[in-house]
Simulated scan of single mutants.
Amino acid sequence: MNKVVIVTGAGRGIGAATATLLAGQGYAVCINYLKNQAAAEAVAGAIEQAGGRVITAQADVSSEAEVAALFETTQARLGRVTHLVNNAGILSTQARFEEISVERFRQVLDVNVTGAFLCAKAFIRQARGPGAIVNVSSGAAKSGSPFEYVDYAASKGAMDSMTRGLALELAARGIRVNG
């Protein structure tokens, strides 16, 4: 089976490490990034040097049109996407709940929750047979991150709920969903 994975937010940190690990396990990898093309290209270069198949693709995961283009590009260049790692996320500066603006709250939800929703939906639409979705969550979903990141914690709690619901919906189709 040709294993093809999109790792969102893969230009650095957990996403970069995940993309590198999966490439080493034989996956063709699409490294998604939003702004830092140089970082994404550096990760791709390291994967290529190790003999992996890799592309980079800029896309804002909170945009349905850009997510659709991300999946189209990946399929055209690497093959049908068999795995998805929803890693892209944002975390703003520490703030008490009452200091968090509506704009900040909405942006965190748009990227962290709506982005994962849109990517999972695009993945499901083109899925054929066994595959997997991994949603990168956080212990903040359980702790609530008081006095720091209640907005981020709320987004990861939503991610956990979406993960559970998707796992139950997709199990019969041979698609695992984990967080």
Rank of each mutant, 00 (worst) to 15 (best):
M1G: 11
K3R: 15
K3I: 01
V5A: 12
V5F: 00
I6S: 09
T8E: 02
T8Q: 07
G9I: 10
G15N: 09
A16H: 05
T18C: 06
A19D: 04
A19M: 09
T20N: 07
T20Q: 13
L21H: 11
L22E: 05
A23Q: 10
A23C: 13
G24C: 12
G24Y: 08
G24D: 11
G24H: 10
C30H: 11
I31K: 07
N32L: 05
K35E: 14
K35Y: 12
N36H: 14
A40Y: 04
A40H: 07
E41V: 09
A46E: 15
A46V: 07
I47M: 08
E48V: 10
Q49I: 01
R53T: 11
V54M: 10
T56N: 00
A57P: 02
A59V: 02
S62F: 07
E64H: 04
E66Q: 15
V67L: 01
A69C: 00
L70F: 03
E72R: 08
T74G: 06
T74W: 09
T74D: 06
Q75H: 09
A76S: 09
R77P: 01
L78C: 08
R80W: 02
V81K: 08
T82R: 08
N86M: 03
N87S: 05
I90S: 01
L91F: 06
S92H: 14
Q94D: 15
A95I: 03
F97S: 15
E98Y: 12
E98G: 05
E98D: 14
E99F: 05
I100D: 08
R104P: 03
R104S: 07
V108G: 00
L109E: 02
D110W: 06
V111N: 03
V113L: 10
V113C: 03
V113K: 04
T114Q: 06
T114E: 04
A116K: 02
L118S: 01
L118Y: 01
L118E: 01
A120L: 00
K121A: 00
F123S: 03
R125I: 00
P130C: 12
A132P: 09
V134Y: 13
N135S: 09
N135R: 10
V136S: 08
S137V: 15
S137W: 04
A141N: 05
K142V: 03
S143P: 00
G144L: 04
G144S: 07
G144Q: 08
S145W: 10
P146N: 07
F147G: 01
F147H: 14
E148K: 14
Y149E: 09
Y149H: 15
D151C: 11
D151S: 11
Y152V: 12
Y152I: 13
Y152G: 11
K156L: 06
K156H: 05
K156I: 06
G157Q: 06
D160R: 05
D160P: 03
S161H: 00
T163N: 06
T163G: 04
T163C: 07
R164G: 03
L166V: 06
L168A: 09
L168R: 13
E169G: 04
A171S: 11
A172P: 02
R173I: 02
G174M: 12
G174K: 12
R176C: 14
R176W: 14
N178H: 13
G179R: 13
G179M: 14
